[in-house]
Design a protein around this nucleic acid. Structure first.
Ligand SMILES: [Mn+2]
Ligand SMILES: [Mn+2]
Ligand SMILES: [Mn+2]
Ligand SMILES: [Mn+2]
Lengths: 220, 220
DNA sequence: GTTTATTTTTAGATTTGTCTAAATTATGAA
DNA sequence: TTCATAATTTAGACAAATCTAAAAATAAAC
């Protein structure tokens, strides 16, 4: 139906639109796709012709209903495959993104329906990201980033914003994973780094940048 | 590393070379790939440049060592995925070929290594075809086609030559699958059709063409 | 051993996705 | 408001994979 390239652009547009609120610009897409603005312009015309985006020259783009559905289905497939790789094939959470990036393009509704059943219809992937259901609806969850917590407050890690291998390997070294309990015991005014206690035992000092990529559920 | 198109050509050449003994011609490849002889000529030059085939104009091709290894690895991936789809996701054997045709191109040695372990290192796929090991070696097996059996001889189905959905669905209707016991009780001289008894109960008359696509292990 | 017929290759085009360089439009600072 | 800068699109080109039509090489028939 759609080429890999088209699908990857649609996913990129969806993800940019998720954080920025307004319409998505050519340069922003070029950056995410690691390509030139000229190539993006070419592709936007094509995606518009196929009815996946609303596009007016120089005005940026938004996804159409069809584009939005395609994006959520790709995200659903990507995250279900990640669950498969970690739960069934015993990959670590830092190894699965690139493989899922290929698997997400396999074209079979029946395959995804059965994979979902096989995995027990998981609601979150190995990085804590919600898996949209077959209708594209995401499960919402109360969460804040670790930087939002006050001194002495506690939280349980439920997600990570950054998915790159170096970041996840760093968390592995620190023995931080989904479900890890964290308590803020010091906030350094100088560089905004924070000191935390992991699972009531290990003490670590982490940068603001790291903390900003950790999503936690507050516990009392 | 290689494009999907290149991989599919290499697989096609391997499969043709498997039955015909001599070097593989342009038209034979074009037929298998459902494309024009001109397109095949273009691609052969490319595959030769990449060191995957031995190619001399007008003389047909053979796979190089690298080409042969690529082919067996693709077949290994294809058949392991078919086992996954049938054993784990409960697809029927007639539903899995096309999906595996896509999955075989996913690029990760670690993925296949782990998939193999997860599936218990199966030696045969859902159609009874041998799965080459990581070194490309196939498990051999004593087998003949059903047309080779004499009157009153018995066999157990261990493989099918044809993998198309219509053929496999026809076998489903007849309740014939891998492991099915068959005894020849009549050979019709006129059209060479044969009458068999399935699992000591059901009686069926099947055409010579059907019989020629059933591979059995002889039992005494 | 010529002459057909078949097989295979080349020529010239097309589509997809990409590029660099240049032109155009929009924006924001003075 | 005008001018400089940034964002975006267009122009022209290229590699990959395909096509049809035509030419060339090989094989088969007589
Ligand atoms: Mn992708
Ligand atoms: Mn993920
Ligand atoms: Mn294939
Ligand atoms: Mn098979």
């Amino acid at each position: 139906m759609y080429t890999f390239a088209e699908e990857n652009y649609i996913k990129a547009i969806f993800k940019i639109a998720e954080r920025e609120q307004n319409s998505v610009g050519t340069n922003a897409i070029a950056k995410v796709m690691s390509t030139s603005a000229a190539s993006v312009s070419d592709m936007l015309r094509k995606l518009s012709d196929k009815g996946l985006i609303h596009y007016e020259k120089y005005k940026g783009v938004t996804l159409t209903h069809d584009g939005s559905r395609l994006a959520t289905q790709l995200i659903r497939k990507h995250r279900l495959w990640e669950v498969f790789l970690v739960d069934k094939l015993k990959f670590r959470w830092d190894q699965v993104h690139d493989i899922a990036e290929e698997l997400e393009h396999i074209n079979s509704d029946e395959l995804i329906r059965r994979l979902d059943v096989f995995l027990g219809s998981p609601k979150f992937d190995p990085h804590g990201d919600p898996i949209p259901n077959a209708q594209g609806k995401f499960t919402l969850r109360n969460q804040v980033t670790l930087t939002d917590l006050q001194l002495e407050q506690q939280g349980v890690l439920v997600g990570v914003k950054e998915h790159t291998t170096p970041f996840l390997e760093y968390l592995n070294e620190l023995k931080i994973g989904l479900g890890t309990h964290m308590k803020i015991i010091k906030i350094n005014a100088f560089d905004e780094s924070i000191t935390i206690i992991i699972n009531q035992s290990q003490k670590h000092n982490i940068s603001k940048k790291t903390a900003a990529n950790l999503q936690v559920k507050v516990v009392k």
